[in-house]
């Protein structure tokens, strides 16, 4: 019993173990110094998944049925708006960043209004709003071929002692969010609501306000991801958010956060993001085709959720 509880509490460790095993296999296959290069690349790319993953984690933790499907649209929208406003100029960086955050705020607000006023399940609410947001992004950013301001591009790709600076920043950010989750009124409230919304309300928690903060937080992080990602990849593209729908949910689930709500883990998101990227890298180095790669990615997610499933509240 105790060892079982221990493992179920530390389920997120497996994401790091998985990441390490996959990395080891890749490193042995390519041999030599290639292994470190793989790690730094993985850190760069995983960073973006982690940013949106953290937002998605808070949303999912508020309980069954809560999930943010508007993340990809928000990424594209925020990226397009920021690029167009900054127009490649360093001086406009703060304004571009503010605009990007404003995009996130608007989307988050809109999502919450749909959920609260139209009383639609969050899945459908965020899905419908993502249609609108994506269209806005497409219409606004049509033919957008604007390079990011050099400063942003430099920051997004800079390395310190070979380690991506952005990754370091986001690791620190993850630490902060972990503290927010475990040591603030907000974080505790999210965890309580996820376990039992009714009990949380009866224990004096303002459930609606917490849900509002959570959807806004998720949208803000998606906007941040869009902003940084356009700096990293030399400009915004309209489908740059696409892969983050599954990725954001997958890293949350693989990282040991319970889909049933009430149990979340921030470090696990890093482990899971590294695992997901390293897995693709490994399959690539093994020369596996794109089809097999997709199938394995999908099957791993289904397998993890099947194993992790069942931890429903005892009713």
């Amino acid at each position: 019993m105790t060892s079982l509880t221990w493992i179920s509490q530390k389920a997120w460790i497996w994401s790091f173990v998985g990441a390490f095993v996959v990395w080891l296999a890749t490193a042995l296959y390519i041999g030599g110094a290639g292994g470190t290069a793989v790690i730094t690349t993985a850190l760069s790319f995983a960073t973006f998944t982690v940013i949106v993953g953290i937002g998605q984690m808070f949303v999912i933790t508020t309980g069954p049925g809560n999930v943010d499907l508007s993340i990809p649209a928000t990424i594209s929208f925020s990226g397009a708006v920021a690029m167009k406003i900054m127009d490649g100029s360093n001086a406009m960086l703060p304004i571009g960043f503010a605009a990007s955050m404003a995009c996130g705020l608007v989307v988050g607000l809109f999502n919450y209004i749909l959920i609260r006023i139209l009383r639609i399940p969050p899945i459908i609410a965020t899905l419908s709003s993502s249609f609108l947001v994506l269209s806005t992004a497409i219409a606004y950013g049509r033919g957008l071929k604007i390079k990011p301001p050099p400063l942003l591009a430099e920051f997004a790709t800079a390395r310190l002692l070979g380690i991506p600076v952005l990754a370091i920043v986001i690791i620190l950010f993850a630490v902060v969010m972990s503290v927010v989750l475990n040591r603030t009124m907000y974080g505790r409230s999210v965890l309580a609501i996820g376990q039992n919304q009714r009990a949380a309300w009866l224990a004096g928690i303002n459930v609606e306000r917490i849900r509002f903060y959570t959807y806004v937080l998720s949208a803000l992080l998606a906007a941040l991801c869009g902003f940084l990602l356009s700096g990293f990849s030399g400009g915004a593209s309209l489908n740059m958010g696409q892969e983050y729908l599954l990725a954001s949910i997958a890293v949350v689930v693989i990282g040991g956060t319970s889909v049933a709500g009430g149990k979340a883990n921030v470090p696990g998101i890093w482990g899971a993001a590294m695992f997901m990227f390293l897995l693709v890298t490994m399959l690539n180095t093994f020369g596996v085709s794109a089809g097999i790669r997709l199938i394995l990615t999908g099957l791993i997610i289904v397998a993890v959720i099947t194993i992790a499933g069942g931890d429903k509240p005892p009713r």
């Binding site: 965890l191 309580a192 039992n196 009430g262 005892p314």
Partner: peptide
């Protein structure tokens, strides 16, 4: 207790 009271993970 189960539906209105306790937070079972805590």
């Amino acid at each position: 207790r189960q539906t209105d009271g306790i937070f079972h993970l805590w």
